[in-house]
Design a protein around this nucleic acid. Structure first.
Lengths: 203, 203
DNA sequence: TTTTAACTTGTCCAGATGGTCAACTTAACC
DNA sequence: GGTTAAGTTGACCATCTGGACAAGTTAAAA
């Protein structure tokens, strides 16, 4: 990758990173292209060269995030042992809360706000992901590895708890005396969520 | 309450209700006073008569929500039996997800976005609430009623799971074939969360 | 070297934004 | 019934918004 290719790649990367931060603070409507441009260190017109509209950019940011989550969830199928699978999945998800804190927030804002963009571009990917995971949990139940729980509600519970540490980072920081929960606490957090889940579902 | 008093009360109520909806869709920056006025069925200038600035209105909406949550959590102290207390609290929280769906979303957006307003006006109330609840859980642990768990993380877990059904209603709806989880499912949801919590903490 | 397509950016614009204000109506108190 | 304070509202404004565009620069192909 040289010359123009590299320039294109660098610029889009810079723009998406900046957009992720601004969208995560203000949501789609509240974010301004100027602010995104400033954070990216590029003129506003340049943003519009790579992403014709604000919405195009927003969609790209959301697609990136879902792709990463779907990737995270692959690990769910990595083991036939639900304990290992749950722990691996939660662990990855929590890691990402710390290493890529803005991504999940953009998603959260989009969904909370009613998912206008979501509806058109992301619905089917999410549904597919969800169906697959439910099927896996139900398989474990059939195999007698898990208690007979509602797979969907269990998935929501795991989702909710892991998301919390990313999305509500600000709230947990306030409660933790203004000190961010760092990567050092992540093992503790993971273990806590996993314990709760396992005691709930392992026979 | 007659005449002017009633007028004032009616108008502020209408405005706050409308604001709650708009803020929950667009966040603080994305919401416009015009849109709030339209939803409230009042001229924009009238909004500014009761709430001089957009931020004044926003703060009021957030304060209302926190007040309700603090009220919800009173029930936590209503019983010495943690099982009864947890069930009552989760149940109330989930009820509110259905009866007042916008409130929690405004809060979520504020916190996710970094809590500028939160910081100044709501921090201390939240901290006080949190400390009290942790103390109660720790008391139960000392009394041997609960397993030795980290009270703070347990509180986060309960918080996250209950919030999920309010904040991510849109996502759960998509997954549920476009059909909203109605008040009819609320018992099921409550029982699911409570079971997970109880299996995790009851000795 | 010339040509061409990709990229950059300062400038501009129609429409929207939060908020003001002055003219007005309503209801309560003397 | 007259005075006053509370409430209403259309018109207005400085500023900001997403986006268009034309004049430029860069780098790769001919």
């Amino acid at each position: 990758m040289t010359g123009k290719e590299k320039v294109r790649w660098d610029s889009t990367r810079k723009i998406i990173d900046a957009a992720e931060q601004i969208f995560s603070k203000k949501g789609f409507e509240g974010a301004t292209t100027r602010e995104i441009a400033d954070k990216a260190g590029l003129p506003k017109a340049n943003i519009h060269y790579y992403f014709p509209t604000k919405e195009d950019l927003y969609v790209q940011v959301l697609k990136d995030i879902l792709a990463e989550w779907i990737n995270d969830a692959e690990i769910f199928d990595s083991s036939d042992d639900p304990e290992i699978a749950f722990r691996a999945y939660v662990s990855r998800k929590i890691q990402h809360s710390f290493t890529r804190p803005f991504a999940s927030k953009v998603w959260a804002m989009e969904v909370i706000g009613g998912g206008t963009v979501f509806d058109v571009h992301l619905k089917s990917s999410l549904l597919e992901w969800n169906t697959k995971k439910c099927r896996q949990i139900n398989k474990w139940i059939e195999q007698g590895k898990l208690r007979k729980v509602n797979a969907q509600y269990l998935l929501y519970a795991i989702w909710a708890m892991t998301q919390h540490y990313a999305d509500f980072e600000y709230q947990t920081r306030i409660i933790n005396n203004g000190q961010s929960l760092g990567i050092e606490q992540s093992d503790e957090i993971v273990e806590n969520i996993v314990q709760l889940v396992l005691r709930g579902v392992i026979i």
